[in-house]
């Protein structure tokens, strides 16, 4: 390779400097190289994120949101996951597995529950003042897959996505309208605004 380059340089030099008439052809080739860096995009496509709770039953009409993930990297390049941290002074994961039912805990933002109340709600314990848990379902288009992963060291309970070589998929999450038994109690849960925030993140490994 070095020899070829040297030859080419000599030839180019000869072409550029020689006043002697040349009797052959000179072929100079340049090879252009570039690399595609890992890239990822996450975009919220739609949301039905507002609802009204019936005080008598704790039910609402259901909520949902969809996201699109696009990446040129595989699972070795990024971690892909959904988190939900409570909007409280001591944040904790709002995702839960209550008796096998995947759930998300909404908290009263005007009458903030304690950390202990939230943790009890996540266990289905009825002492969960100003917390209400609703079932949540997640679906992502193939070949990507997702699974509930409890107790991530940084984010607590999360939903983890594997791209499995896929480059673009839509994810749909749905919050059910019926509260998980024992997490809604009209005598405990004061009126006001209940909130939960779900964030879809991709972070380079």
């Amino acid at each position: 390779m070095k020899r070829n380059i040297l030859t080419s340089l000599i030839l180019i030099t000869a072409v550029l400097t020689s006043t002697v008439k040349a009797y052959g052809t000179v072929d100079v080739r340049q090879r252009l190289l570039t690399s595609a860096e890992p890239a990822v995009a996450i975009q919220k496509l739609s949301e039905n994120n507002q609802g009204v709770i019936d005080p008598a039953t704790g039910t609402h009409g259901g909520l949902s949101a969809s996201f699109k993930i696009t990446t040129n990297s595989d699972d070795s390049g990024y971690d892909y996951f959904l988190t939900s941290m409570t909007p409280t002074s001591v944040p904790t994961s709002a995702f839960a597995d209550i008796g096998g039912l995947k759930a998300i805990v909404f908290v009263n933002v005007e009458n903030e529950p304690t950390y202990q109340d939230i943790e009890r709600a996540k266990m289905g314990n009825k002492l969960n003042k100003n917390c209400i848990a609703y079932p949540i379902t997640m679906n992502i288009e193939s070949p990507m897959t997702l699974e509930y992963v409890p107790e991530n060291p940084f984010y607590g309970n999360i939903w983890q996505i594997k791209t499995n070589g896929g480059e673009s998929s839509n994810l749909l999450q749905t919050v059910g309208g019926t509260p998980i038994t024992s997490t809604y109690n009209i005598a405990q849960d004061s009126s006001g605004t209940y909130q939960a925030v779900v964030t879809f993140t991709a972070i380079a490994k």
């Binding site: 890992p38 890239a39 507002q50 949101a65 849960d189 605004t193 939960a196």
Partner: peptide, 27 residues
């Protein structure tokens, strides 16, 4: 096109969020 940060080569991170809000009326 990706200048908004939605997607960029070599980015360490990308994310988007949804904030759900439910109103519980007085009873």
């Amino acid at each position: 096109v990706f200048a908004s940060g939605a997607m960029a080569a070599g980015d360490e991170q990308a994310n988007d969020s949804v904030q759900y809000q439910l109103t519980l009326a007085d009873y």
